[in-house]
Amino acid sequence: MATMKQEPQSVRLLTIEAEHEGQRIDNFLRTQLKGVPKSLIYRILRKGEVRVNKKRIKPEYKLLTGDQVRVPPVRVAERDNELPSARLGKVQALDTAIIYEDDALIVLNKPSGTAVHGGSGLSFGVIEGLRALRPEARFLELVHRLDRDTSGILLVAKKRSMLRSLHEQLREKTMDKHYLALVRGQWQAHQKGVNAPLKKNELASGERVVRVDKDGKPSETRFRIVQKFQEATLVEASPVTGRTHQIRVHALHAGHPIAGDDKYGDRQFDEKMRGLGLQRLFLHACRIRFFHPGLEQTMVLEAPLEPALKTLLTRMATA
């Protein structure tokens, strides 16, 4: 939390408390100035309108307990009490997607097609939806990310102490995440993992892709066969590292692109899967194991496949 006192012209002076220690000032401002575009937040930081202990700071400045933060008056977009019907439907879908919640954590079975946060032309994401669902929550931050088209388990911290603990578990690789992926062809039992460095690239079109590259960052994914079909294999993928698009690129590198992957997939295979009813990327975060510091116990949570994916697997098994 941060205590606050008012100055004239609606300038706010916030005193940083222990809960926000270590948080970047730009991320802190995004929680304080809800509805304000990120571009405006960075503009007031660049112009020196935000001060910490009366000094100008950069967006990457990390807050310390006791810091005095000056927040200038900023026009916040008016929020209607009534959400547009399309967005209301998405918010309600997120409500039904919550598989676990306590005073420090929300765990979602994120639907495919929903971004984790707005931006890049998207006005709605998981965070925006959760803020609409939990307007009383002072702190809501993503612990990790899922690609927009990937479904499954997503952790959202409701306390900074929880966020710190889970980030440490990610760094120390003590958090286990497991995904289900339907891939092209017959995955061989001896192929138990892919260890290949990954590097982000930008194409001439501006599209960003990830490629296996000797100059990339070390990356490792473990794979296990779950079920074999005539032209495909359902595998469980467990990322050891957490690179962008890691499972998708490693599956491709192994010669088995994931079904429905419009960036790294196989067009002919995808057409066959569409003929069987697949309308999305078949990649689902199905299980996670982590230590809950508040409960002082290890938690294992699972998120079931959506009915359409279960139906697809049934059709393939009987084909």
Rank of each mutant, 00 (worst) to 15 (best):
P197Q: 05
H250L: 00
I106A: 06
R51Q: 12
I99F: 01
R160D: 15
R46E: 13
R148G: 08
R208D: 03
S112N: 09
F269R: 10
R224L: 04
S219D: 01
Q227P: 02
L278M: 07
Q68W: 12
P293D: 09
E302Q: 15
G185V: 05
F290A: 05
F223C: 04
E207G: 00
E172W: 09
T114V: 15
N53W: 08
V116H: 12
S219I: 03
L234K: 02
T96V: 15
I288V: 15
I247L: 14
T65G: 03
R222P: 02
L234W: 04
F124N: 13
A237F: 04
V71E: 03
G113C: 03
I99T: 05
H178T: 13
M175R: 12
G125K: 07
H250N: 01
P84M: 05
R79P: 02
P73K: 01
T233H: 04
S151K: 06
V126G: 14
G260E: 00
L309R: 14
D67F: 12
T174E: 07
L63K: 07
A86Q: 03
M316Q: 01
Y179G: 00
Y179L: 01
A137G: 08
G216M: 07
P72T: 00
Q279N: 09
T311Q: 15
E60S: 12
L40F: 07
L133C: 07
M4Q: 06
G216R: 04
Q297K: 11
R30W: 10
E302V: 13
Y100K: 11
P84R: 08
H250E: 01
I258N: 01
K38Q: 15
P257D: 11
L154R: 01
V249L: 04
D67V: 14
Q227E: 15
M299N: 10
